[in-house]
Design a protein around this nucleic acid. Structure first.
Lengths: 198, 198
DNA sequence: GCGTCAAGAGCGAACGCTCGCTTTTTGTAT
DNA sequence: ATACAAAAAGCGAGCGTTCGCTCTTGACGC
């Protein structure tokens, strides 16, 4: 199959990544051997190494996909211009839907740990987090201008806290898929909406 | 050196765990070979395998230590009976102090991922999270009885959200040690105290 | 001198990955 | 249309290395 279209090549690459993702979800990055990925993809070592320079390359690609997906969900959610509390309450549901098909969020949790020792991934993670924080900060600032958010709140610090609400849900749901996105969303929304009695 | 005291044995065990922790922090669980741990401990394979049945045993022991530390910090903080917003604002500082000596929180992040594939660790993680949630829920319930917390808030769901604020800080700080515990604490406190304008 | 602990050589298995070969497809000349 | 040459995708045996771990052996406190 030489001299094939670039779409073919991209599809092949995606095929390998999908196979790797399935194994990584089940067994973890490092309990999965490259041979496992090769078997899952129905290829041979040479076939896989034509598309990826190393196992680490595959891990990085998968991790970037996972964090990119989270980033997108948050950005999309903010774009809807809902009230902030409602937005926060809705995010868990959106993430749960993203996760339903392929357990992608389990990959995200593993990628978090991986980012601590892989510089490329660490940089990407910091960048991704910074982007999400920036988006949330802008939303908070707008809210303050509109009078929907208390003026004395530090937008940057609060944005980090909102990011935590998302990350925490991803983590807790990875451990316990029973965790209801709706219930968690209500809890998170209530916290943001002003949990303490006036 | 036969027939030594049980304190000696316990100390030996701790010595090995400390050595393993140093390596695990630097290189990750799976990029660290058992030989690395052996070298770091200044022992031989036989010396290490007298105290641990397998590398996984060491990983589990280290992970349990890390999650136990978080659990303790939260429980201690709740016991101080401060106002809830103040408590949440203070937690990041307490965690940062815990982390300062040995980067223990980097181990926690790795343990989170490890819990997804190691059933023992998974169970421990669910249990640990449930304990923390229970403690926070009780605190919220008390707050509701005292009128400090809005009555319509679901205590369980809100407790999960508070746990997220802690987990998110651990994660974000692991990626970026520059993240100020004070600033984050203020943000988290503000969110809980009622971020949205009345 | 018995009982225990640690040393360290070394085991088999599994690892990530390479490389020479085969197979398949495409472009071009006929 | 057909034949052929060039190019590239995929195969898979097998490389060297490293892995987690075992087991014999010697050292030493009691």
């Amino acid at each position: 199959m030489p001299r094939v279209s670039s779409e073919y090549l991209a599809a092949r690459r995606r095929h390998i990544l999908a196979a790797a993702a399935r194994r990584f979800v089940r067994d973890g990055f490092h309990q999965t051997s490259i041979q496992d990925v090769i078997d899952e993809a129905g290829l041979s070592p040479g076939g896989v190494y034509r598309y990826f320079r190393s196992k680490d390359d595959i891990i990085v690609a998968i991790s970037l996909e996972a964090i990119g997906a989270v980033q997108e969900v948050v950005q999309d959610a903010v774009r809807t211009h809902r009230p902030l509390a409602e937005l926060v309450a809705a995010l868990p549901q959106a993430i749960a839907e993203l996760d339903q098909a392929d357990d992608r969020m389990r990959l995200a949790v593993q990628a978090w740990g991986e980012a601590l020792r892989n510089p490329t991934l660490g940089e990407a993670m910091r960048e991704g987090a910074a982007t999400v924080v920036a988006v949330l900060r802008e939303r908070i600032l707008v809210g303050q201008q509109d009078g929907d958010v208390a003026a004395q709140v530090d937008p940057d610090a609060a944005a980090h806290a909102l990011l935590s609400l998302i990350q925490g849900f991803i983590l807790q749901r990875a451990w316990n898929p029973e965790l209801s996105a709706d219930v968690y969303g209500c809890g998170a929304g209530a916290v943001v909406a002003g949990m303490l009695a006036a």
